[in-house]
Computed example of a mutant assay.
Amino acid sequence: MPGRLQHKAALITGAGSGIGLESSLLFASEGANVLLIDVNVQAAEKVQKLIAERYPNVKSAAIKADVSKESDIKAAVDKAVELFGRLDVMFNNAGIMHPEDDNALNTEERIWDLTMNINLKGVWWGCKYAILAMRNNPTDASKGLHTGGSIINTASFVAIMGAATPQLAYTASKGAVLAMTRELAMVHAREGIRLNSICPGPLKTPLLMDFLNTTEKRERRMVHLPMGRFGEAIEIAQGALFLASDESSYITGTDFAVDGGLSSCYVTATGEPTLPPPSSLA
């Protein structure tokens, strides 16, 4: 049975860990050819090796790229087109949450600039060069392939409702990702290029766990989680798969929340989790 991304070509940033790792494996399992990019190229290469072992019928490659550098993003998109002949899915997922990110009084300018360069400017570069590539996609109706494509930008629940734990640069960068994604979705809708933001809730990934490095910080987040647990990266990858696939062909400009209900609640009742997390593909 054909996969949900059969014959499509995808580029995933931040592919070496967390959401990027799970999405890379999941997209490949659904038939996509995937180019994995990460500033930590060794991590991306490990994921690529897993893909090659598990899904030998798809093409995959891993390269080093710093998403805050325009030349790196352009080179990565060009590489995807060179390898696969097209680009159907761009998942702008790479991002940072710096442990020194704090409130307006304590956050240093260097932390602000670093966060914006990666979380916001990196998404801008990714959108720019993906759009240029998707305009030139060859049409193959027999395989369901056309011009246009799907661009998915990782935002966050904090862009919708703010964070209980101060992280000003991160929150501001993710709010900007939402606004930018909405505008680009409207500008390019008639070209068949869809852009959506995915807004994860708090996840049990190294990125967040390194930031929530005290019991007080973790408990402050947990009280806002209706399911009584942090999310798993694979749960965000499943949402990204939907947005990447033709199943979401009439969806563009959305803020797709995958947050366990967090953005719908104020403070939850205490108690044990009622729903266990799913198993990982990794």
Rank of each mutant, 00 (worst) to 15 (best):
M1T: 15
G3E: 13
G3L: 11
L5I: 10
L5S: 08
H7D: 15
T13K: 01
A15S: 12
S17W: 13
S17R: 14
G18P: 14
G20K: 01
S23Y: 09
G31M: 11
G31L: 12
V34C: 04
I37Q: 02
V41N: 07
A44F: 05
K46T: 06
K46Y: 10
V47T: 09
V47D: 06
L50P: 01
E53Y: 00
P56K: 06
P56T: 04
A62M: 06
I63L: 01
K64V: 07
A65W: 12
S71I: 04
D72W: 02
K74A: 03
A75E: 01
A76R: 00
V77Q: 00
V77I: 15
K79C: 02
K79A: 04
K79N: 09
M90F: 11
M90T: 00
F91R: 00
G95C: 11
I96D: 13
H98G: 02
P99A: 05
D101C: 03
D102I: 00
D102H: 09
N103D: 15
N103Y: 06
N103P: 13
A104C: 13
N106C: 03
I111L: 02
W112E: 07
T115P: 09
T115D: 04
M116G: 03
M116Y: 08
V123P: 02
W124A: 02
W124E: 01
W125R: 03
G126K: 01
K128Y: 06
L132D: 11
L132G: 15
N137S: 00
P138W: 01
T139M: 02
K143N: 11
G144V: 08
T147L: 00
T147E: 11
G148Q: 03
I151P: 02
I152R: 02
T154L: 14
A155K: 04
F157M: 15
M161F: 07
M161R: 15
G162L: 03
Y170E: 05
Y170N: 13
G175N: 14
V177K: 10
L178V: 15
R182W: 10
R182D: 03
E183M: 14
A185G: 05
A185E: 05
H188K: 03
R190C: 12
E191V: 05
R194G: 06
R194Q: 04
L195Y: 05
P202C: 07
L203D: 14
P206C: 07
M209H: 05
M209E: 15
F211N: 05
L212D: 07
T214A: 10
K217R: 15
K217G: 14
R218D: 13
R221H: 08
P226G: 10
G228W: 12
G228D: 15
E235K: 10
Q238L: 12
L241H: 08
L243T: 06
S248L: 01
S249N: 08
G253I: 02
D255A: 15
F256D: 06
G261M: 07
S263Q: 02
T268I: 07
E272F: 15
S279K: 12
S280H: 13
A282L: 10
